[in-house]
């Protein structure tokens, strides 16, 4: 099964995970969130990580994003070893390479759309202009709105703009449509697809919504902390054609 995680284009992977385990101690109970995961991710691909609630997909994303470190195994981003890295190294890694999109957007309520983006571009090396990033997600006309003045879908697209504005090497999205209705969810997915296509950003979306899998290059199934199947879509569906 693990071997299938590596079945992909014959180029060097961006991410390499080998034998990754993560054990949480919850009181007196040990929870094995990841249990020997091997996974490679390649430049520019759009990967959907599909699994039910509690399957370990968020843990996997957190480790990829440098928010958490594995209990065992190795994680490499290019030549950076993420497993066992210090907090400062991980902060620098997130700052330079990773863009995050969260289920609940996590915008700063006291900053406007443009300012939320500027917060990240201020500390990035070669960022886009915040207005340009918002243009990519179709919010060029709402840059001076505060989060409370935006709909859920608009807020999530601001979050995507914030994530891509620094031109990250990888975009990690945790249930990006989880809090949205069907129509707005599709608009958010369109934005993600466009970023992936136009900027070539490696994109990982975790979701429990199987319908989204049709727009991915690869779909990885996860269950009980193990990768249980990988499939490649010969033809990717456009977000507009999805339905759930």
């Amino acid at each position: 099964m693990n071997a299938e995680g590596r079945a992909a284009p014959a180029v060097a992977p961006v991410f390499r995970m080998r034998g990754v385990t993560k054990v949480y101690t919850m009181g007196e109970v040990e929870v094995r969130a990841l249990d020997g995961v091997d996974l490679d991710l390649y430049a520019g691909e759009f990967v959907v990580l599909l699994g039910a609630s509690g399957s370990g997909k968020s843990t996997l994303l957190n480790i990829l994003g440098g928010l958490d470190v594995p209990t065992g195994g190795d994680v490499w981003y290019l030549d950076h070893q993420l497993s066992g890295a210090e907090d400062e190294t991980l902060t620098r890694y997130r700052r330079e390479h990773v863009g995050f999109v969260f289920q609940f957007y996590n915008l700063i309520p006291s900053l406007t759309a443009a300012e939320n983006v500027a917060l990240v571009t201020d500390i990035a090396v070669q960022p886009m202009a915040p207005e340009a990033a918002l243009g990519v997600v179709g919010l060029g006309d709402r840059i001076n709105h505060f989060p409370a003045q935006l709909s859920g879908g608009e807020q999530q697209r601001v979050a995507i703009a914030r994530a891509i504005a620094k031109r990250p090497d990888v975009l990690l999205c945790d249930e990006p449509t989880g809090a949205l209705d069907f129509a707005t969810g599709k608009m958010v997915l369109e934005a993600l697809e466009r970023v992936n296509r136009e900027l070539g950003t490696t994109t990982v979306v975790i979701t429990h919504n199987a319908a989204i899998a049709r727009m991915a290059d690869r779909v990885i199934h996860i269950s009980s902390g193990r990768l249980v199947g990988v499939e490649s879509n010969a033809v990717k569906a456009a977000p507009g054609d999805l339905s759930w």
Binding site: L67, D87, E88, R92, R94, F100, P109, L119
Partner: peptide, 16 residues
């Protein structure tokens, strides 16, 4: 807390 944690995730250091 949520804002600050988000900022940490976005790559701001503890000092920032």
């Amino acid at each position: 807390a949520a804002t600050l944690a988000t900022l940490r995730i976005l790559g701001l250091t503890r000092r920032e």
